[in-house]
Design a protein around this nucleic acid. Sequence first.
DNA 1: ACCTGAACACCGTTCAAGT
DNA 2: ACCTGAACACCGTTCAAGT
Lengths: 195, 195
Amino acid sequence: VLDAATELLDAAGIDAVTMRGLGERLGVSPMALYRYVGDRDDLLVALIDRLAARLQFPPRPDDPVAALIVLFSTLYDGLAEHPWLVEVLSRRRMIAPSVLGAIEEIHAALCAAGLSIEEAVQAYRVIWQFTIGALLVRAGASAAGASQQSQVRGAPDAERYPTLARAAAGWTAAHGRDMYRDDVDVLVRTVIGRP
Amino acid sequence: VLDAATELLDAAGIDAVTMRGLGERLGVSPMALYRYVGDRDDLLVALIDRLAARLQFPPRPDDPVAALIVLFSTLYDGLAEHPWLVEVLSRRRMIAPSVLGAIEEIHAALCAAGLSIEEAVQAYRVIWQFTIGALLVRAGASAAGASQQSQVRGAPDAERYPTLARAAAGWTAAHGRDMYRDDVDVLVRTVIGRP
DNA sequence: ACCTGAACACCGTTCAAGT
DNA sequence: ACCTGAACACCGTTCAAGT
């Protein structure tokens, strides 16, 4: 059912996952699929949950801060492979049941680090929204990729934007590399109040 | 040129902004538009820059922390009205030239608060990615809206997810309200190191 | 220069009809 | 129950042709 969709996705990308294309792959009319998924968006949501279920979390360190970084990094890395994912997430609110375990662990680690349950919820929301924003920025960056879309090339007009001009070096340094790991590190530490 | 697209967008939503629909509104063939935009995605990017240029920033307080909160909140509020925006951003890396002024001010305020230029860049990236993630989550939430998409309804299985069960109250509290202002507040303060 | 018509190669989805 | 054919109402985009 969804196996074929996953294969199709891995083989030909998200654009190939259409009702018609999937029907063809299964040797079946596109209409037959509507008995099983109801909707194309439904299909995509189910696909996301499948990808989430595939995530392999490495063993968690005892230190809550280190454990949090492992958990978030694994989520980020796993989702970063699929840029189309953020597009679906922007259309459908969803919490993939498959990641509930990880979310539980994150909350537990935040509490273990000394936060109250309310503080943990807020901290989780902040870091999660940061994570998903990082994914979105990354998706945009990879999509732009070879295409010379980077407006604001070189030093931004020092007259009008003096601080940005000074910051240009830092920007281009951040440009290529993926800064998620560093950023989530400072975020976790500051949120927990342990610099 | 883009005026018509903006009107169409405001009147009938992003789905109505198609080459064909826009051509019809202008009393012109869809093909004529390709002399002016090159691409549908191009059109959407230009539209985003237009929305960004429309943003009205209130006067900034002298206190850098307060100024940062005003700047980010205004960006957030302005972009939150257009959920389709994150979809475009996920496909195209872009920095709308119209918001460069705001970005400059943000960096300046971060430096004024005592951060080095490198720290300011990192702080900006973290808060910006958090902002865009908040927009994405919000877009998903509003899209789900009336449709009963909220899986994980009620208290999550206390057996398997004890911490989440304890957190349930905090979650449902956060559910309806928009927490951006509160969240960005703590984020700015912690990043600046002034609790 | 600027625009059009006709066509290509697709979509998702509905709905009545088949086995 | 499960599937199909044909059709509906669209898309973005190419390309040769018009004024």
